[in-house]
């Protein structure tokens, strides 16, 4: 199978993730959409790695996974504190600082 198809899939996943960030209201779902974007980037990296026949892309994919895990730790901590103080994880409710 032509590896370029995986690039199209990666671009599609990235777009779905980006639209999820922009359209969804729940902070957790927004965050999941961001993770989808990171994984789309991983898929693109691994595909390019296969096409070029070197390992750089696969190594970066591992680093991305570690970074994504660290991001989950920090992100969920922040979202959970917000949820506990406001009983809502909606990003629309976080509007104390409008102009």
């Amino acid at each position: 199978m032509n590896p370029v198809n995986y690039l199209f899939l990666a671009a599609l996943l990235f777009t779905i993730g980006a639209s999820g960030v922009l359209l969804r209201r729940n902070a957790i779902v927004v965050f999941m959409s961001i993770e989808l974007m990171l994984n789309a980037a991983n898929l693109a990296l691994v595909t390019f790695s296969r096409m070029h026949g070197n390992l750089d892309g696969q190594i970066i994919a591992f680093f991305t996974m570690v970074v994504a895990a660290a991001e989950v730790v920090v992100g969920l901590a922040i979202i959970v504190t917000i949820f506990r103080s406001r009983h809502s994880a909606s990003v629309d409710d976080a509007g104390l600082m409008k102009l």
């Binding site: 974007m37 980037a41 991983n42």
Partner: peptide
Amino acid sequence: EAALKYFLLGAFSSAFLLFGIALLYG
């Protein structure tokens, strides 16, 4: 609230950065 906004937008932008890295690597 500031932390939530910074985190969500920051993570969003670093996802863009990472996809850019993937394309440049490609």
